[in-house]
Simulated assay, not measured.
Amino acid sequence: MPPPDAFQYAIWRVVPDVERGEAVNAGVVVFCRRRSFLAARIELDEARLRALAPQLDIDAVRRHLDGLVRVAAGDPEAGAIAALPQSERFGWLTAASSTIVQPSAIHTGLSDDPDGLLDRLFTRLVAAPRAR
């Protein structure tokens, strides 16, 4: 098994009202330069978002998040930013923003399985809890 490599990740949060400061985690993006890995996953907890902001346009938020995932994947249909190298796309995807979707601080670590790491981070930090 290859040794672990450094990775970085950030959480995308939906902040319906910046002044209130309330947020719902909606996605995670993981970058591992040495493994040429950049990927993201999203999930919207609509009930939580509606509780915070009944007027929120959930479809617009979903389109915004879908666009971020497409940029991470390098989808040619996602525009010029999606054509940038992975490191530049990750920087753009995690840049501070005052929009409704905001990235967390960037976190780092080591992993020998960035795809599995993305799954674990998504389950722990974003996915709605499931009844067991």
Rank of each mutant, 00 (worst) to 15 (best):
F90Q: 10
R124V: 15
E77H: 09
D17E: 13
A10K: 00
I100L: 07
F37K: 14
V71C: 05
P76C: 07
V126P: 00
L56M: 07
D115Q: 15
M1A: 15
G74F: 10
R20H: 13
L52Y: 04
F122K: 00
A47K: 06
E46D: 03
S98N: 11
E88C: 13
Q86S: 15
P16H: 00
R124F: 15
L52C: 04
L117Y: 03
F122G: 00
H64N: 12
P4K: 06
A26P: 08
A10H: 00
D66H: 14
A95E: 11
D66Y: 12
F122V: 00
C32Y: 03
I11K: 01
P54R: 07
G109S: 08
L49S: 00
W12P: 00
V18P: 13
S104D: 05
A23W: 00
P3K: 09
L117D: 00
A39L: 12
D75V: 04
A131V: 05
G74C: 09
R20A: 14
C32G: 03
R33W: 13
V15W: 05
V15Y: 02
L110T: 02
V61K: 09
A47M: 08
L52K: 07
S104Y: 07
V24N: 02
F7R: 01
A78S: 08
G27M: 00
L44A: 06
A51R: 14
W92S: 04
R20G: 11
A26S: 14
R50I: 12
R34I: 09
R89Y: 04
R13A: 09
P129S: 15
T123C: 13
L118P: 02
E22W: 11
D45H: 10
I42H: 12
I100T: 12
A39M: 09
D115K: 14
A47G: 02
A78K: 07
D45C: 09
I11R: 02
L68C: 10
D119H: 08
Q55K: 10
A96C: 06
L121F: 05
V126I: 13
D115A: 13
G91H: 08
P85I: 08
A10C: 03
M1Y: 14
P16S: 01
A105E: 13
V29D: 01
F37Q: 15
A60E: 10
A53V: 04
R33L: 11
F31W: 05
I81V: 13
A23F: 06
V24G: 02
A73H: 08
E43Q: 14
V69F: 11
R89P: 04
A96K: 07
R50A: 12
V18Q: 15
R13N: 11
A105Y: 10
P3E: 05
A78W: 03
P129R: 15
R41K: 11
Y9D: 03
A131H: 07
D5Y: 11
A80Y: 04
P76S: 09
P129D: 15
L52T: 02
L49H: 01
V101H: 13
H64G: 08
I58G: 14
L65K: 08
G109Y: 03
P114R: 06
R130F: 10
E43F: 11
T99W: 13
L68H: 12
A82E: 01
R13S: 11
D75K: 01
D59V: 14
L49V: 01
D5Q: 11
